[in-house]
Design a protein around this nucleic acid. Structure first.
Length: 225
DNA sequence: ACGTGATCATAT
DNA sequence: ATATGATCACGT
């Protein structure tokens, strides 16, 4: 098995590549790719995601769009426990705090990113050495009507808060399936936002995250069928 | 025990 | 500074 040298030409090629790495350990995949394996993720938090990107042929780099733009697919690795339940929330995208005036759910980055996701569940329990953690079964997901409605509802609630200049009163407790949380290198990083009077303020950058309960439902729904 | 808020590495 | 890849770790 070899690292692909180009992006997958179509959806079936992406799916084949994903199925091909299922069952392998992170150590095996890293060795075959000539990538060093960290002892833990304290200083290597995105390591698994980048390893899987390499194996699937995603273009490296940080673009505000999908990982496979020509296929309209976003890649997400998801750390799971021995029962197949998510261990972490899932980052979706940066949250604009100075809202484009005509933004709607339909035109939002969240909707765009979540239209089609290739989920790659990976064993993530800290007791398992990084090299021994295995890739579970990857699968493509598109939100069904109910899931889409939940996401839209949360996006609209959170976006309205931002639009009303109430970013700083939003906590991670808002949102049923998706939350807004700080997303930065440290608590000292500040970006522009608006207060309730429309004045520019400085606040911590935020990102949208999917709650574990929601990604757990996605896994359950997929694997029960 | 768990989720929230904080944090780490890297590219542009 | 923005944005990607996320997990860490403390307070509740």
């Amino acid at each position: 098995m070899q690292i692909p040298t180009c992006a997958p030409a179509d959806l079936s090629e992406l799916e084949s590549r994903a199925q091909a790495i299922a069952g392998f350990s992170l150590g095996e995949l890293a060795d075959m790719a000539g990538i060093a394996i960290p002892r833990d993720f304290k200083r290597h938090k995105g390591w698994t995601g980048q390893l899987i990107e390499t194996w699937l042929g995603a273009t490296a780099g940080s673009k505000p769009q999908q990982d496979f733009p020509e296929l309209g697919v976003e890649l997400k690795t998801l750390p799971i426990n021995q029962f197949g339940q998510p261990l972490e929330t899932t980052y979706v995208c940066y949250a604009p705090l100075l809202l484009p005036p005509l933004i709607t759910w339909q035109t939002s980055n969240v909707k765009n990113k979540l239209q089609c996701v290739l989920w790659v569940p990976v064993e993530g329990e800290r007791q398992i050495p990084v090299a021994e953690r295995r890739i579970a079964t990857p699968f493509l997901w598109q939100p069904n009507e109910a899931q889409n409605a939940l996401l839209q509802q949360d996006w609209e609630e959170l976006t309205e808060m931002i639009a009303l200049g109430k970013v700083e009163s939003v906590t991670a407790r808002h949102g049923d399936v998706m939350q807004l949380r700080p997303k930065a290198a440290s608590g000292q990083v500040l970006t522009d936002a608006l207060d309730a009077e429309g004045n520019k303020i400085k606040t911590r950058p935020r990102g949208f995250y999917l709650r574990k309960q929601f990604t757990s439902l996605i896994l359950q729904t997929h694997f029960q069928q």
